[in-house]
Amino acid sequence: MNCEYQHKVNKKEIPVCNILGVNIAAINMEWLLDFTDKNIKDLSGDYMCVSNVHTTVTSYDDPDYCAVQNGGIMAIPDGGPLSSVGRKRGHANMERTTGPSYMGEILKISAEKGYRHYFYGSTEETLEKLYKALNENYPGIQIAGMYSPPFRPTTPEEDAAVVKRINETKPDFVWVGLGAPKQEKWMAAHQGIVDGFMVGVGAGFDYFAGNIERAPEWMQKCNLEWMYRLIQDPKRLFKRYLVTNTKFIWNAVVRGK
């Protein structure tokens, strides 16, 4: 994380609720879209975390990752339990604000606003499907570029070449789909180096490429999207949900941390 980075947007204007040490933005989608529209140029070089129970509990256990979560312009409440805790703590307007939903809202207005998008992460196959789907579903979208990084750590030379490649395309948004905690650490390491507003959207690339389906809207509204994802990928998610959800309930809900 770039400790010397100076945010061009005043973070004090963003309402937050501290949950397990993470300053979760006490906002809703309408507020976030208005904030983005007013500040997109000044958000270039900065990043936004899309936070859920898993990332928040991980931050509680790992001070370095907590600093990464708090080091961007904000951490939005992607997980329903975060916004529920926030409302119980007095933030009446705090609502679940997911990364894929934010990405979708931005894509809808991109042609009108002239936004340029760069996509960093996932596989070549998924990026090809994503490119096709975005052009079909969002006529006039400007895809500045796409890059599927290697699964091994990159060398400093490789990283510098990728940064140069991204910056030459002059993107407004750099969508990062590496999964947590990798994507947040990547954004923090490139704060003030990569041009464009970096947003870590996890499985967002897969959703928009059509690789996996999002939960029905009624499940999303009832904070049950985690259950839908668990049914889709039980081997990977069962242990994570069991451990992190239990820790979250005990520490954030029962103990009030």
Score class of each variant (00 low, 15 high):
Gly99Asp: 09
Pro100Glu: 04
Pro100Asn: 04
Ser101Phe: 12
Met103His: 10
Gly104Leu: 11
Gly104His: 14
Ile109Trp: 00
Ser110Phe: 00
Ser110Leu: 02
Gly114Pro: 09
Tyr115Glu: 07
Tyr115Cys: 12
Arg116His: 13
Arg116Gly: 12
Arg116Tyr: 00
Arg116Ser: 15
His117Ile: 05
His117Lys: 03
Tyr118Pro: 00
Tyr118Ile: 06
Tyr120Trp: 08
Ser122Cys: 06
Ser122Leu: 02
Thr123Ala: 02
Glu125Gly: 11
Glu125Arg: 08
Glu128Ala: 08
Lys129Tyr: 09
Leu130Asn: 12
Leu130Ser: 14
Lys132Ile: 09
Ala133Val: 02
Ala133Ser: 15
Glu136Tyr: 04
Asn137Ile: 00
Tyr138Leu: 00
Tyr138Pro: 00
Gly140Ser: 13
Gly140Glu: 07
Ile141Ser: 06
Ile143Lys: 01
Gly145Phe: 03
Met146Lys: 14
Phe151Glu: 07
Pro153Gly: 14
Thr154Met: 15
Thr155Val: 10
Glu157Ile: 05
Glu157Trp: 04
Glu157Asn: 03
Glu157Cys: 04
Glu158Asp: 08
Glu158Arg: 10
Glu158Pro: 06
Glu158Met: 00
Asp159Ile: 00
Asp159His: 11
Asp159Ala: 11
Val162Thr: 06
Val163Gln: 07
Lys164Gln: 15
Arg165Trp: 08
Ile166Gly: 08
Thr169His: 00
Phe173Thr: 05
Val174Ile: 01
Val174Ala: 07
Trp175Leu: 03
Val176Lys: 06
Gly177Lys: 02
Leu178Val: 02
Gly179Phe: 08
Gly179Ala: 11
Ala180Lys: 01
Ala180Phe: 15
Ala180Tyr: 10
Lys182Tyr: 06
Glu184Arg: 00
Lys185Gly: 01
Lys185Ile: 13
Met187Asp: 04
Ala189Ser: 11
His190Asn: 07
His190Gln: 15
Gln191Phe: 05
Gln191Asp: 11
Ile193Trp: 10
Val194Cys: 03
Gly196Asn: 04
Phe197Met: 10
Met198Leu: 10
Val199Leu: 15
Gly200Ile: 03
Gly200Trp: 01
Val201Gln: 04
Gly202Ile: 02
Gly202Asp: 01
Gly204Thr: 13
Phe205His: 11
Phe205Thr: 04
Phe205Val: 03
Asp206Met: 15
Asp206Cys: 03
Ala209Glu: 01
Ala209Lys: 05
Gly210Met: 09
Gly210Ser: 06
